[in-house]
Write a protein that binds this DNA or RNA. Structure first.
Lengths: 316, 316
DNA sequence: CTCAAATAGGACAGAATACGTCCTAATTAT
DNA sequence: ATAATTAGGACGTATTCTGTCCTATTTGAG
């Protein structure tokens, strides 16, 4: 037994590895007649692995999606990439996926050839991916409805508690999810506030998928919105600070905040709002380049106070 | 055709999903006689998928590692976890694995059932994993020898350029790799300096695997060493700063750096070394709590200069 | 339009395979 | 010792597999 079984699986592997192959090529590789290749194609279909074909010149066979994922054949390099990916995914700390991750790891661990396992073991034991630690695991019951909502572009009702505020029900059109600095966030259109908002998933106390659909804006960029909503958050005072440096230096000192700087003749303009000039002054004082405060005067005062504080410390 | 093929693949799937199953159980699930199950076990062996068995009471069959990875059957949940993992791995920006990641993604994309693909598409399109951006891709030619060295505990010779210094050859026993804040690092024992050191992979200009072996210290923790080596790095000057705050507040302002603070009667002692009082003064000036500089006097001067700089800006 | 190169699938004969049954043998744990 | 498991050869019967042969259809290039 097993001659045909081996050859059918070999066919599957060939088609997985190549976008498309001709019947002649497949017959040569499998050591059978083209008529048999056609039978094997039928066999794959019977296995629930549909194959699409093109007739005529440059015709050939290609795998297409079926109702079920077929057996997957991975090369060693691909398997190691998967190992690394699972290692990284584990750090994302999503409750839903941790079980699945362990399951995949167990499956792979069980059957890996010794050499590959040794390498994968070296990856798992000796490579660490440090992501900012998440205090709390992002609760598993939120992700599935969120993914549904994202996929189907349907609104959700959430019970959400902003920082130091009582929980409020809101209707939101979720546009995207984001993992950043150890936390998961959802960006979307908030019907309560009538504008784009970003929500921390660990503050989500309840979520319910609605029937109502929405249209996500074309080319909505979750990370971009997140950055601007975080640093463009409403505050009492408009702030304008001119940084006398170049974009590269700014990025090194400020990380992603630099993405919101606007190039001007005199340098890079930081335009934002703040509730606390004191906090902003502190943040500004660590910048390793010159800057000028354009607005507001309160910020100049705060920076002066900061300078005085530091002077006192230096003279102790 | 395909009856046996289907059943052999079903057997493989069953064994992948369960640690072990008896022949009786397998026969029932496959709808065949136990004698046939034994033939299918042989078929798997002929496919290069070895199976180990236990005779006697509670006997059964188990998959073991062969010379080649067998066809893998993943559930939908597992596939989505893999998708998320690949998304995260992509952000790690290792040149070697990017090709393999794309390859795996293409393979999965090609055959995923529509529902699963839609969900995976939603993940890829709407979930962003923001890791600190890496300026430069970590060069591909370093990883393979490094993984070899880690796996086989063999020394390497590296040509390495510390910050603003000429490249130097060093012999290193690599203990681990670390991805943190957008960069890849290697921790290991440096024979040139006769102590543990941490190296940035993007500053690695050359690497060569040696025949010489080493013994990695038991329970070596890459991340732990990294943290202490980064903040305990040798410098010209001993630094002691007393922070007049509590541990929790310190952690909020300083992140992981807080782990190296020592509690004292007057507050928390930061004890480190630095080459640049100017940089440290800048860093200190953002702290939102009071502190006192104990050592060195140069740091007090630097802080004074920082205060003067800020005062100038505030008075413009 | 013709031709070449591809896919498609039915039919046939002969070879090969698959299966359950029956049997003997060996290994474990109770 | 017994029960419950794995092991594998042999047999007869039914089924499957294969290459060959053939006709049919689809593409792209000249």
């Amino acid at each position: 037994m097993s001659g045909p079984t081996i050859r059918v699986l070999s066919l599957l592997e060939l088609l997985q590895s190549h976008g498309r192959l001709s019947g002649t090529e497949l017959a040569a590789r499998l050591g059978v007649d083209k008529r048999t290749v056609r039978r094997y194609i039928q066999a794959l279909e019977q296995l629930g692995i549909p194959v699409t074909t093109e007739q005529g010149c440059d015709g050939g066979y290609m795998l297409v999606a079926g109702f079920k994922l077929p057996p997957m054949m991975f090369t060693n390099d691909e398997t190691l990439a998967l190992s690394l990916g699972l290692l990284a995914a584990h750090n994302l700390n999503l409750a839903d996926t941790q079980v699945a991750i362990s399951s995949v790891q167990a499956k792979l661990e069980r059957v890996m050839p010794a050499k590959l396992k040794s390498r994968a073991r070296a990856i798992a034991d000796n490579i660490k991916v440090i992501l900012p630690a998440s205090d709390t695991e992002t609760s598993g019951q939120h992700l599935a409805p969120l993914l549904d909502a994202l996929e189907q572009q349907r609104s959700v009702t959430i019970r959400y508690a902003s920082y130091q505020q009582a929980p409020v029900f809101r209707q939101v059109d979720p546009y995207g999810l984001l993992f950043r600095s150890g936390r998961w966030y959802m960006s979307g259109y908030c019907h309560l506030r009538q504008e784009l908002r970003t929500f921390r998933l660990d503050r989500l106390q309840q979520i319910e998928l609605l029937q109502q659909c929405f249209n996500r804006p074309a080319n909505f960029d979750t990370a971009e919105h997140f950055t601007s909503s975080l640093y463009g958050m409403p505050g009492n005072l408009d702030v304008q600070v001119m940084l006398h440096t170049d974009k590269h230096t700014a990025a090194q000192a400020m990380g992603e905040t630099a993405s919101m700087l606007k190039p001007q003749a005199e340098g890079l303009l930081l335009s934002t709002r703040t509730d606390s000039c004191y906090c902003l002054a502190q943040w500004l004082s660590q910048l390793p380049f010159d800057f000028s405060i354009i607005e507001p005067p309160e910020l100049k005062l705060a920076l002066k106070q900061q300078a005085e504080r530091l002077m006192n410390i230096a003279q102790r």
